[in-house]
Write a protein that binds this DNA or RNA. Structure first.
Lengths: 336, 336
DNA sequence: CTGTTAGCGCGTTCAC
DNA sequence: GTGAACGCGCTAACAG
């Protein structure tokens, strides 16, 4: 059964083959208006025979938007990012939406603008920005009004609706846990943040302040575990350092290796707590104590929020699921 | 400067504001035909003022396709997958394409069909299937003719153009390395494969056969490091096991922890080699010896291939970059 | 160089 | 119920 031509079959072809008008085909497709059983079946048969698929571009053109949601992120490979995206995709797929990914190379206005433009050149019905870091923040700012946007983030924010994780609470829990173990203070190796007041570093600082503990200078490591490794080596040379909270599990792993390479044992000499719940954390030696965040659920929640925005429903405003401190082997009492 | 209405500005609005015809605006947009400097500037100014963005759906409708490439994958969070996707996205973005992601839940025909349909409901200009596992294989089979498709895979395949990594060669190198260290044979903990004859397990087996070494039964672990952990425990109880090649680094990490938990040291008692070049591998103690694969480059190559297909060019047919054995600490001579 | 005329594939009025 | 006519936003093909 050769195709009439090389081009994909259009609704016209289906109508012709089924011996009905184009609108009738459209009706059986959308189900908007009842169609007599006889014709419906002929249409369906024709669709089957031709291998017809409605053209999304044409549909989008008519309806003003298509079932596409765009995700903007500075990276798609890091654990939290990847899992959030997976969560978004899953929820989107279940709702018949498909997901577009655009990476924001940096927080430079030019990079942000080009990513935003690329994404918006397509008829998206909504967007989700992974606002975990400066490029994410910049993207949220650069987005034009009129497009439904939600930010997925580790802490509350303003401007656009946010789906959040409670990073502050998580950091507070971890820090208090360490303090409760008897450590005089807790050091912090930080990931990039989405704001001065927000996130893991803020929770850490708050817990320290509340306990009246000394607040050491933050060690910045970006996203690079090897920088955390270097911090591990230098922190390991300081006997006063007995506990370290890391901005994520990858950093914690790098840090632990650095500590080890200068002869410090974890947790006997130094306690380490990570953040995220990376699946490899539990396999490390020692198994990593960490603050587990449910990124997949964050992704789903983000999608539900945009979906609500798109349909004009009031946002369900579900609150962030509380992070969970998973106690394993990498933290213990300070050395005596 | 309030928008004339709530809807996004269209090319008509720009033309009106600039006092030119619609096609003239289109010409400055596409650059297909020269436009006088005076008008061009007025058009540009109007575009700026209105915040106009060309509607991708309308463009796609006219041109017959849009600059979208769809990626089908069974997972987007695992290391190799995520990095490949990142590579695709980067190359695509540079070429003005955007990337859609659709996850194939399983290899069940229904799941495969629904993923394929969802992706194809949109006017994509090409597709890339991550053919690293059974769902990927099923997706390649389920794809209709007529859409440019390339498979990104760890080994050669037929049916559609493939962009490949040389998994077989990588496994051969690793196995021969272990054998060269003096091990009598090498055990293998396997990931899912894209075919009986292909991939890491095949290379491992080939190298063993060539060396005349005994070929132990393959231990299957799927993608789950915890199953590799269990294999580590059971393998650790067998004194005859002195070397293990793992299907990927995550499995290697799980395996090493299992080995450790039954009192076996790596590499003194058992040598372990991973696969992929996971960034955390070098931070493990002992640092993981592994076969490094350049997934980002695979992603770029995949995109270049579809791009060539889309434009009707003959495929550049660039060959796979050779995998590199990265020797670190986890493998050494067998115990005496 | 520029404006006019068509038409991409589809959903949505309208009449019948 | 059903078909005819129209328009979504844009670019290609024509005239000038």
């Amino acid at each position: 059964m050769p195709r009439p031509s090389t081009r994909a079959p259009a609704i016209t072809d289906v109508a012709k083959l089924a011996g009905v008008s184009v609108p009738t085909v459209s009706r059986v497709l959308t189900g908007s208006v009842p169609v007599s059983t006889a014709r419906r079946e002929r249409v369906l048969a024709a669709i089957e025979e031709l291998g017809y698929r409605p053209n999304g571009a044409a549909r989008a053109l008519v309806k003003g938007h298509q079932s596409v949601i765009a995700v903007l992120a500075s990276d798609t490979t890091r654990y939290g990012y990847a899992v959030t995206i997976q969560g978004i995709e899953e929820a989107a797929r279940a709702a018949g939406f498909i997901v577009m990914i655009t990476v924001i190379e940096s927080e430079e206005p030019a990079a942000v603008a080009s990513a935003v433009n690329l994404a918006l050149r397509n008829p998206v019905s909504g967007m989700i920005v992974l606002k975990f870091d400066p490029p994410g923040v910049a993207a949220v700012r650069a987005l034009p009004k009129g497009v439904p946007v939600v930010a997925a983030s580790g802490s509350r924010g303003t401007g656009v609706p946010h789906a959040t994780l409670d990073d502050i609470e998580g950091a507070v829990k971890a820090t208090e846990y360490l303090l409760g173990l008897g450590h005089r203070t807790v050091h912090h190796v930080a990931i990039p943040t989405s704001g001065r007041r927000a996130g893991r570093a803020a929770g850490w600082q708050r817990a320290l302040a509340k306990a009246g503990a000394e607040i050491p200078e933050v060690m910045y490591a970006g996203w690079d575990p090897r920088r955390a490794y270097e911090h591990g080596r230098s922190l390991g040379d300081r006997p006063d350092v007995t506990a370290v909270l890391c901005g994520n599990d990858e950093l914690a792993i790098g840090l632990m290796r650095g500590l080890r390479d200068v002869g410090r044992r974890v947790p006997e000499d130094v306690s380490v707590v990570g953040f995220d719940g990376h699946p490899l954390g539990e396999l490390w030696a020692p198994a990593l104590t960490t603050v587990e965040q449910d990124f997949a659920e964050l992704g789903q929640r983000s999608f539900n929020l945009v979906a609500a925005l798109i349909e004009g429903r009031s946002s369900p405003m579900t609150s962030a699921r509380q992070p969970r401190l998973v106690i394993r082997e990498s933290a213990g009492p300070p050395p005596v």
